[in-house]
Amino acid sequence: MNVYFQKTHQRAFGTFPLTGDVARDAIAAAAEVGYRAFDTAQMYENEAETGDSLAATEIAREELCITTKVHPDNFTPDKFLASVEQSLKDLRIDYVDALLLHWPPVDGDIAPSLRLLEECYTRGLARNIGVSNYTVQMMRDAVKIIDTPIVTNQVEFHPLLNQDVLLAGANEVGIPLSSYSSVARGEVFKHPEFAEIGEGYGKSAAQVVLRWILQKGVSLNTMSTKPENIRANFEIKDFSLSNVDMARIEKLTHTGYRIVSSDLVPWAPEWD
């Protein structure tokens, strides 16, 4: 089953860039609010804090959906498996619910890392596998390279960036998208439309943004260190945006505000 589209897992608590006690406290607050899906990565250097916090909650393991991602530096046969085993040790679990490749490899050859990812699934180290930051062509190629279903492609997704091409490609090959930078690292709050729409529903601008993403068929990763915002980000299932409001927000995607590019991350591909 695709863990990203179980009802309790459509809203994940993202842990980047939190570390130390700040990470532990935020994760604990998210669990108390009701989050059961948590997203981390080797690159974030907070898997141990994530593991500590989740163990302290005493939430049953089967209720949790824990995602981590393999660093591109570990995409070689001598490092991949060992890095995943270390992630599990740090997370204090026997398996991860979803193991993702964090970025495409710099050389563009996605096959070797996908096969190593599938090996982790075969060994029982991951219940599901996925990718991050793949283009449409990469998704098309990926489903031909490995037989194991790819449960998600985690990408930058928010209403200030038009991802229609990527979303159509994802639907074409059957790989659901999940979001990061869901509120564009605060850039959405510079646009009054979200707050104006929110007034009609008794919801905040952020809640409108997150609800728009969900209604686009994309699952969420959101992060905050403030308990009130953590709760607000979670409480977005009790309303639906009208077609008129969805269309109004859609117009803002032509803003073209992209956070993650090759200038920021060396592994970033040429985006669709």
Score class of each variant (00 low, 15 high):
19 T>A: 08
19 T>K: 11
21 D>W: 10
21 D>K: 14
21 D>N: 11
22 V>R: 12
22 V>L: 10
23 A>F: 03
24 R>H: 15
25 D>L: 13
26 A>D: 03
26 A>Q: 02
26 A>K: 00
28 A>N: 10
28 A>T: 09
29 A>Q: 07
29 A>E: 07
31 A>D: 06
31 A>K: 03
31 A>I: 06
32 E>T: 03
33 V>Y: 01
33 V>N: 02
33 V>H: 00
34 G>T: 00
35 Y>L: 06
35 Y>W: 06
35 Y>A: 04
36 R>V: 10
37 A>W: 02
37 A>Q: 00
38 F>T: 03
39 D>A: 04
39 D>V: 00
39 D>Q: 02
39 D>E: 05
40 T>R: 08
41 A>N: 05
41 A>I: 06
42 Q>E: 15
42 Q>H: 12
42 Q>T: 09
43 M>N: 12
44 Y>F: 08
44 Y>E: 05
44 Y>D: 00
45 E>C: 15
46 N>F: 10
46 N>D: 14
46 N>M: 11
46 N>E: 11
47 E>C: 00
48 A>G: 11
49 E>T: 01
49 E>Q: 02
50 T>F: 00
50 T>I: 06
51 G>L: 04
51 G>H: 00
51 G>Y: 01
52 D>W: 03
52 D>Y: 05
52 D>K: 04
52 D>V: 03
53 S>I: 02
53 S>Y: 06
53 S>V: 04
53 S>H: 04
54 L>C: 05
54 L>P: 00
54 L>D: 01
55 A>D: 12
56 A>G: 02
56 A>I: 02
57 T>N: 07
57 T>C: 09
57 T>M: 09
58 E>A: 13
58 E>K: 11
58 E>Q: 13
59 I>A: 14
59 I>C: 11
59 I>Y: 13
60 A>P: 05
60 A>M: 10
60 A>L: 13
61 R>Q: 03
62 E>K: 15
62 E>T: 12
63 E>N: 10
64 L>G: 06
65 C>H: 14
65 C>F: 15
65 C>T: 14
65 C>D: 12
65 C>L: 15
66 I>E: 02
66 I>W: 01
66 I>M: 08
66 I>Q: 03
67 T>F: 05
67 T>L: 08
67 T>R: 07
70 V>D: 07
70 V>R: 12
70 V>T: 12
70 V>C: 14
71 H>E: 15
72 P>D: 03
72 P>E: 01
75 F>H: 02
75 F>K: 02
76 T>I: 09
76 T>A: 09
77 P>Y: 12
78 D>E: 15
78 D>M: 13
78 D>R: 14
79 K>V: 13
79 K>S: 13
80 F>K: 05
81 L>F: 05
82 A>M: 06
82 A>Y: 09
82 A>H: 06
83 S>Q: 10
83 S>A: 08
83 S>N: 09
84 V>K: 01
85 E>P: 08
86 Q>A: 15
86 Q>E: 13
86 Q>P: 05
86 Q>R: 14
87 S>V: 06
88 L>D: 13
88 L>E: 07
88 L>S: 07
89 K>H: 11
89 K>N: 12
90 D>H: 08
90 D>P: 01
91 L>F: 09
91 L>P: 04
91 L>D: 04
91 L>M: 11
92 R>N: 14
93 I>M: 14
93 I>H: 05
93 I>K: 14
95 Y>T: 05
96 V>P: 02
